[in-house]
Structures are given as C-alpha cells and as structure tokens.
Design a protein around this nucleic acid. Sequence first.
DNA 1: AATGAATGAGCTTTCATTCAT
DNA 2: TATGAATGAAAGCTCATTCAT
Lengths: 208, 208, 208, 208
Amino acid sequence: MAVAEVKSNRTASKEARRQQLIQATIKCISKRGIGGTTMSEVASEAGLSQGIVNLHFKSKDNLLNETLRWVAEEYKSQFEKTLEKSGPGPEDKLLALMELDLRPSVCDRHKLAVWFAFWGEAKAVPTYQRMCDAYDREYDEVIGRLCEQIIKDGGYQAIDARTVTEALSSMTDGLWLSCLISPKSWDRQIARDAVHGYLRAVFPKHFE
Amino acid sequence: MAVAEVKSNRTASKEARRQQLIQATIKCISKRGIGGTTMSEVASEAGLSQGIVNLHFKSKDNLLNETLRWVAEEYKSQFEKTLEKSGPGPEDKLLALMELDLRPSVCDRHKLAVWFAFWGEAKAVPTYQRMCDAYDREYDEVIGRLCEQIIKDGGYQAIDARTVTEALSSMTDGLWLSCLISPKSWDRQIARDAVHGYLRAVFPKHFE
Amino acid sequence: MAVAEVKSNRTASKEARRQQLIQATIKCISKRGIGGTTMSEVASEAGLSQGIVNLHFKSKDNLLNETLRWVAEEYKSQFEKTLEKSGPGPEDKLLALMELDLRPSVCDRHKLAVWFAFWGEAKAVPTYQRMCDAYDREYDEVIGRLCEQIIKDGGYQAIDARTVTEALSSMTDGLWLSCLISPKSWDRQIARDAVHGYLRAVFPKHFE
Amino acid sequence: MAVAEVKSNRTASKEARRQQLIQATIKCISKRGIGGTTMSEVASEAGLSQGIVNLHFKSKDNLLNETLRWVAEEYKSQFEKTLEKSGPGPEDKLLALMELDLRPSVCDRHKLAVWFAFWGEAKAVPTYQRMCDAYDREYDEVIGRLCEQIIKDGGYQAIDARTVTEALSSMTDGLWLSCLISPKSWDRQIARDAVHGYLRAVFPKHFE
DNA sequence: AATGAATGAGCTTTCATTCAT
DNA sequence: TATGAATGAAAGCTCATTCAT
C-alpha cells in the first residue's frame, strides 16, 4: 500500500492525484504488464478507491497515454540535466548521455519493463508509436549534433554522424533489452565497455 | 478473412492445424498486440470456428507460449542455415549473421512487433522471459565463439569477446526497435553501416 | 422478474445484497436444478445485472456453498426455535421436531428440491457432503439425547437410542423424498401418521 | 479404461453398446454428478470414441433418461427376484425386501449417488420425476399388499397399511441418504435394527 | 458402425465505466 | 472530489452435437 506519500488522501491537489496515479500505473505495468494492469489495481496500488482513475483520467487509454508521456518526460528531463551538468566538450556530453542510460536509476528492470511494455504495444497502438517516435527523434537530434561536432573537431573524415547516432542509440536500447531479459547474466561493466569500446573505436582521438 | 488454404475445414492433420493457428496468432499479435489478441480473432483469422483454438491449444496462455516458441525456433533455424551457408572464416559468418538480422524478411515491422510484444510482457510473464533468455544465451554463445576466433586470428589484444558480443547483439536489437518505432525514418543502409562501422572499428584487419 | 424490493438498485448493504442473491439462487435451484442454474439467471431472478453475482460471491462454487450453508442455517434456526418453544418433556420436544419436518413451510417441494439438489451432488462435490454431514450430526445428537431421556424416563429396556434416532431421521428424510417425487399422492396426514405410529410403537407410554 | 468387457469394440451388437455406455454413464454420474458428466467422459470411460454416445443415444437427455430407466429396472428385477425367492409368508417377503435395500450391493455409495443425482434433478426435469414416481408407485403397491395381508393375518386392527408402507419405504430411502452423506458413521447393523425395530413394533406377532 | 476434428451456443468470469451517495 | 456498488460488454473456455472420413 503506497498510501500517503501525499499529504492527505483528501486534500491532494488535482495534479498531485494525477501524479500519484501515474506512479501507481507505472508500478502496475512493471509488475503485470499493460494487459494485466487494471483500473482497480492502479487505484488500490495508489491506496485510493475504485472509481478514482476514471475521475482523473477519463479512460484507461488516456491513463496509459499520460503514463507514457510522463515516463518519456522524466527521461527527457534527466537527459537535459545531464547535458547541462556535463563537461563542455561534445565528447564529454556524449559520454555523459551514454552513461545516463546505464545508470542504475535508469537501467533498472522495473523501469525498463515499462518502456518495453509500451514498445510492445506500439505497433498495435499508433498513439504509443507516434509518441515514442517523437521522443526518439529529439534524442537522436541531440546525439547527432554532438557527433557532428566531434567529427568536425577530430577531422574524422570517413565517419557519418547519422550512422554513429543510430549505432549508439541502438546499442543502448539493446543493452536495456539484455538487462530486462537476462538479469542474471547482465553486467553493467560489460555494457559500459561495449559503449566505450565503440566510442573509442570510432572516435579514437576523443575517447582514448 | 483468410479462409482455409487447407483442403477442407474438416480435414487437416493436427500438426497442420496448429501451424495454421500459430500463423494466425502471429498476425493478430502484430495487428493488435498480445492483450488485444482474442481467441475468436485468431480463429477467424485462420478461417475457422470459435472453439478451435482451445481445442488445439487448451488455453490462451499455452497458445502464446507455443507461438513464442515457434517464432524463436523459426529465427533459430534461419540463424543456423545462415551459419552453414556463409563463407568459412569466422568473420564471414559473423557478418552473415549480422546481415540476417537486417534482412527484410527478418527485420520487418510485422515480425518485429511480435518479438517486442513478447519482450513487453516478459517481466510480467516469467515464461516469456525465461524462453527469450534461453534463446538469447544460445545466440550469444555462437556470436561469442566467432568473436573469440576473430580475436585470436587477428591478434586483437585489447579486445574482449564478450563485450563485442554484447555490443553486436545489442546493436541489432536496438536497430529492430528503430525499425518498429520509426518506420518512416528507418533506413536499412544506415543500419548496415552502423553494424559494419562497428565491425570495421573493432576488427579492422577483418572488415576493412 | 422479481424486481428489487430493495430501495434502489444502486443502494443496499452488502449483506442485504448477498441475502437477496441467495434467495434468488434458491429459487433458481428449485426451478432448474444446480446444473441448470446460471449466474445470469440468478442475477435476473434478483432483478439485478449480470456481473453482480461474481461481484458479491466471487465464483459460482462459492455462491452454491453459501447457499447450502444458508439453507442449512435456516433449518437449524427453525429447529432451535422449535426446541425452545415446545413443551418441557423430551417427548414433547421430539414430537415438535418431527412435526417441524412435516410443516408446510418446511416440507414444501420448492424447498425440498434445494436439499435434494445438494444431496444429489454430494458424492461429486465433497464440500457439500461434508457440510451436510456436519449438520446431520448436530441434528442426530439432539434427537439422540431426547431419545435417551425418553428411554430412561419410560424404562424402555430393549430400545437403543441411536437406532431410534436413525429410524426417525431417516423416516423424515424419506418422507421428504415422497413429497418431492410423488406430490400428487403425497398426503401430509399419512406422513404424520407414519411418524406418530412409529413413536407410539416404540415409546408407547409417551405417545399413546 | 474399462475397455473390452465386450468381445470386441468393433463387433459389439447395438444393444451391448448401449449397455456399455449406460454402465459408463452410471460410473460418471457417481463420480462427477449429473452436471459434471460429459458425453466425452462417458465415451472415454467406455473406452470408445467421442461421437459414439450421440450415435447410440441421439442426445444427452436421452442418455440420461435411459440410464435412469436402466437403474430403476435393475432395482426392479432384484426386487422381483427377491419376492420370488423369499419364504411364502407376506412377513417373509416384506422382511426380505427391506433387507434387499440394505444389502451391500444395493446400499452402496456409488449406486446411491446415482439415485440421488436423479432425485436431485427431479424437480427441474419432469421426466425424471415422473419416472421415479411411477417406479415408486409400483414398489408401494407391492409393499402395501404385503402389509394388508400381514394386517389381516395378524388382526392388527388399528393399523393402516398405507401408513406402514409409507413409513417403511421412507425409512429405507432415508437410510440411503445417511449412507451417502455420512459414510464414516454409517452402520449397516444399526440400519437393519431400525427397520426391524419398526416392524417388530407395528407387527409384533410376526416379527418378534 | 465408428471415429474424432470441427462447430458454435452458452456459460463463467473479468473489468472499464457509470452513478448515487 | 471521492467512494465503491452496480452495470454490461466482451473475453476465455466447455461441451453437446455434427459430419467427413
């Protein structure tokens, strides 16, 4: 019963309630998958009553859309914070962003399960697909720009920024899948080595 | 309505019927996701009557398990065929396997949707997770051995086979995700470049 | 359609709803038997909607168990009331209890149909058997004690209380079967004569 | 698998097949109750194929009717044989008939379960009720005649034959119920004592 | 006459949604 | 706003029955 992270069940503001329910939804999706997540369970996970979810989110579809948006926004904000806080060079920023994806708070089975749950429905639910696509595009744009700068900086002639971007973002997504599916054999250091290895190989002057 | 390519609705071997139903299930999962796939739809997709799926698969759970197994086995058999048919060197084989993952018949949104559907439920349905894990392990073992040979061949001292394996298998999985989520901007050539670029970078003597 | 005697369909205490549904179940069993009783029919007999029975009883099995318990408890409470209200002597009490079983409110085809429905499934459904057995034992214990007292009172030397108890309780059960199966020829007076005849024959000093 | 009590599965005569299936039905009813008895289970209990029951009995209703008839006829034939073989006096015959009902081959939980299964549905299925009623009437007629003779013989003035008949047949039915519901505490000797006790009490000159 | 795969009606159950309080 | 009982559509599953062989 994750009751009362919020001051009182009765006085929580509209927005706080929504947050509370989205958190509960995330927990449920992680535990039972999207198909197995019911409105009742979300409510009871939030320590609230049955009808509450429809009250605040109108419908289950809407709840799930908002949950996906929340998850994506949360990632985005960590992404932006990382971008700000990291060193000044594009190679510092790129490395920091790659590290972000492997940080325990991000690369954690419970969180990944939610991403994969939405990806798993993306073909069947165009809303999910479009939303994931849009966020991906933003991500790739940033990574792409960093790569371009590094390429220019280093004079890496034969290298195409878009290709490297695709390689890097694919690699981190794929490492997430390993973490989700093979938690026993998953090893964060190997994952980092894989990414670092790639960076070192394509941008030797920057990541040696 | 994909009405029976099988002689008559009243005649067909038990095994043929199972295959027919698994194919229908795959189509349904691709179209509607796992949660949205109903026994009735599978049956009507197969051009058969309502009760047929329970008759042949006992339960929906069982149907889904068998479908996952089928999809995994199909991939595995293509994998093995590729291994046989490709050139003799480990670098030939490795490249051929990477190409397999990007071949249109494999890297196709409809097929990928099925993989991601199961991965999306893997945390919630331990059976899926275990099965995916087991097949992944087999895959990684083969890739790992090829990498080891290449490393020995080329005297790549600083390189760890397991890390490269993880990088490669993650990259292809991640490329699949791009294909699924961003079909519009997905470009097979870029995907191939990403993989080739990585191979060239880590094993320069073999993939130049 | 026995539409709700309860204020509104949206208001009624949980317990009242359960009672209402158990009554509906009893009617259905009496009309259609246990096998023929469907959740929908129970709901519509209660003037409520389809899902209501599962809402309050979780499952059909549970509903039937609770119904049997209710029927048994109802009988038990009449039994105890009869025991209290009847004259002070054990022979008064015994006679009153026998009369209870033949009273129109008890010995009525619709009610008996329910008992026989459960007895008819008792071998197949151990829960029913155990429950019926337990209530029977309680019944026999009371009857047995009364017989013992009468035997002691009257100095009936050759008579065994347990045998008389078995004879009496069997006779009333058997008379119930006659009432159920041969309603046309069933005659309450003959049934009473049968019981009285037996009592008079075994305990002549008390029932002459 | 109760296969092949019949010469061959392929050559059994129509009538033998019906018998075989009725026996299987009886076993199923005893094990699973009428509601739980399925056509498939009957067939497989008989060691035959799925569609066989409809082939020989047209419908499940018909199968159950025929099964009830068979059970009733079997009892009737034992009843008549007992009537023939017993001593010449009406009191001999009456006693023999009462003993028949308590004989292990008759008063056996598995057999009784079938009787009670049909009685349990009798209110809901008029066919069962009518059939049971008809056989009961025949039974009561014979018992009634024997009682009349005994009454005339013994000059039992105050005694009504019909009442005694009702008492006796009810008592045996009720004893059956005890045997079904309380098999642990059921005691054949007590049951016999109950019946004998009654006979001795009403017809002292004959059963002392 | 026998088989057993196929059918489809009908059942139990679940659950998003509604609504009186 | 919040509650939680009620609703009813839709799902999975069972099984009597049919039918091609």
